[in-house]
Amino acid sequence: MFELLGIPPQALFGQVLLGLINGSFYAILSLGLAVIFGLLNIINFTHGAQYMMGAFVAWMGLNYLGLNYWAALVLSPIVVGFTGVVIERLLLKRIAHLDHLYGLLLTFGLALIVQGLFRNSYGSSGLPYQIPPQLAGGHNLGFMFLPNYRGWVVIASLVVCLATWFMIEKTKLGAYLRAATENPTLTQAFGINVPLLVTLTYGFGVALAAFAGVLAAPIYSVNPNMGADLIIVVFAVVVIGGMGSILGSIITGFSLGLIEGLTKVFYPEASATVIFIIMVLVLLVKPAGLFGRTA
């Protein structure tokens, strides 16, 4: 049996699969960021906090209202998405005409406030959330033990990512959206309610983050910092893929999860930095990102 740098190929398969699983979180989160940036030109730094809120709403639903995981999977994105709508209407709208930097600072500040509030009420060490009974256990694939839940995460995020891509690229609503991105004034002149479109898009992007949060709740600890740890990596993913590129963010999300997974085998110490190294390299060669267009 051949070995690659001392790693048996079977172990490698397992790691590749794990990388894909982590990649699905990157994909779904960076997709939300890309959608928001595409239309609103807002670098949504609250995304991590909204991902965390998604997980927390799922936890609250279970503990206060007795809602199970599946209900949370639907309700949590709606609830958190709605808070996104409120944020857009109350705050983001007012700075829409200003430089990127203002949106970045505003959303970053919001993220700090939200995280602080949750930390105050729920502490920092996290809350338990069990895997739904239907997805407990796992399958032995021969080269690794695949928990059913992880399999579900990959499928669910792939479906959501592709559906989003389809909606934006192939439907009439998506066409309006893309038109509004290109030229909001002209699109509005054609009788399309662009401000409403903008608000809903932000809400949708936020809902995607919350969806990822619910997916993450049973496997990572539900704690106020869960998004802050992840969001920096996700931003790197978006930058590598190219800001605002829908397909780019999905592909980069999955492939960077993969690269990170492999680094964890070959040189674990670097696994937290490998994505940033790639980001630097990509920016040197293609400043607009792998799939981005230069303005």
Partner: peptide, 14 residues
Amino acid sequence: KTPFPGTDFSSFLL
């Protein structure tokens, strides 16, 4: 050796 702080340990556990 796992990066600190970490979130996903599945690769190391494997």
